[in-house]
Design a binder for these strands. Sequence first.
DNA 1: CAGTGAGCGAGCTTCCGCTTGACTT
Length: 604
Amino acid sequence: MPKALVIVESPAKAKTIKRYLGSDYSVEASVGHIRDIIQPKNVKTDKRYNPATHENNSELRSYGIDVAGQSTSENTWEPWYVVSENSKKTITHLRKALKNTELLYLATDEDREGEAIAWHLVEVLKPKIPYYRMVFHEITEKAILEALNHTREIDMDLVAAQEARRIMDRMSGFGWSGVMRQVIGGGASGGPVQSPTTRRLVERERERIRFISADYHSLTASVFSEQDEMFPTKLVEVNGRKVVSGKNDFDENGELKRSSEVVILDQEQASSLQEALKTETLTVSSIERSPYQRKPKPPFTTSTFQQEVINKLGGSASAAMGIAQSLYQNGFITYHRTDSTALSDQAVEAARVSIQTVCGIEYLPEKPRTYENKTASAQLAHEAIRPAGEVFRHPDELKGDLNKDQLRVYEIIWKRTIASQMTDERGETARMLLGGIVSHENNSEPQAVTFSASGRVITHQGFRYIYEETTESDEESEGEGVLPDLPEGEVVTIGQIEVKNHSTKPPARFTESSIVKWMEEVGIGRPSTFSATIGKIRAREYAYKEGRSLVPTVKGIVGTNFLELEFNDEVQYHNRADLERSLDQIANGNEQRTEMLDRWWFEK
DNA sequence: CAGTGAGCGAGCTTCCGCTTGACTT
């Protein structure tokens, strides 16, 4: 008979931990949250309901939260919790497991939600045996055994912070949904995550509608050195004024930003320069070479994982998560809902071994790399997403075990993890300036022109040996070639001259990839909800997908307009980040949950 | 007297975040 019961959140995690702990322990899963705030429609039939005291309690009837509570002096903000329908079986199962043990370990994730789950488990199971809070941030034998020896009590401040978060989400969510239904009708909804996200799509659409395009021309010339080395150059200045070269030179009205310092080439000017340049030469005026280094990207969080899979393989955020789920449950990768870029010591070691065998010793830095998490809202309960185990299995070994999509996703995770521990890419960039004087056939003044050429030489590939991140921006990559080593003053002849017409494009619509990136940056949503939120926005018809783009609908636009009118401050993006700071104050014990909620609800 | 309209109340839905399967299109 097992001596202790360990409860974690995920069944797959339970299975792994069971292997480390042996027969003295039984390991079970809560399968996520087990209770939630009651649905308002069920309040009247709940056994806690008493018409005499609750009849006129409007917050309780509308939100399932008894704000005033029994106290006459101050608000107690008591949510009425009920066991979720899906969790009833789990609870029965856990009760049974609890009967046969002497100790209980609550090993839910060490973050705000995990702490709350641990507390809810105690509230529901009411254990008669000693129970301990046990935490770990990686599923390795060492980490688990250490965690067993360093238990603590449930952190009630952290639980209070979670409860405040839940209460605010319920009240603002149902509140905004009321407005959305008045405007749009049906099952329309609004909320502190879906509405700002929808609003971002709408704002981008407004920018696109407002956008005024501008035209300009570019002039490029291939030139030849005395040794007959050919390389491409680009016209950058005429008479000391910079030639307009892209959207950054224009404002959103299509007007030049610094019209006194720059010059637009129109068709006529470009052609006349083209004609006149045919008989001219250019002189090298300067050449600058400077070394550069590029660091690899950190290993995957949920957000960066979704972005990369969408950019490299196509598909949606939820499709990427579905594949990750199957890889996780079958033990190929670590947990896929995480906001941490940290790797366990064991994982770093595995990556370093892989680098040596797959890439070679010259790609192995002396010391392992560590990455700082940059998002303020990160909870850091897990590792980064990486291949599971003490030794990373090469994708080729898994061809028989995985289907095509799983294999491609595994390979991306494997490469990204290994690359994150590899050496920097190193090389040298070069920029050459060439000057000339152009005389025109008609009697107009001669013009001074400056051309530029750039090049890049990679001396050590580093992490790029194995991994290249794909970005959405379609900026033309130029100057990848080698620039000849010409002395200042060398004269070059001009070969082919090309004039191209360009017009500036409005900012692109968001894709699933770029909106997930934005959500993480501003701290809206969590790893478990990024893809669900996009799904919700589409299901409510606030936006639809056209190719990869997310296009807001009339419903989305009208709804956003009304929310901006009714709840302007709350739909501001920074609101969620501000809220996060308030929750930290509660979690750190610097403020009472009830004080913060009073201020939030009654002083607005 | 029949038809109309104001006013009221009941019932339904909605939030975010944590987990998987069991469902349907």
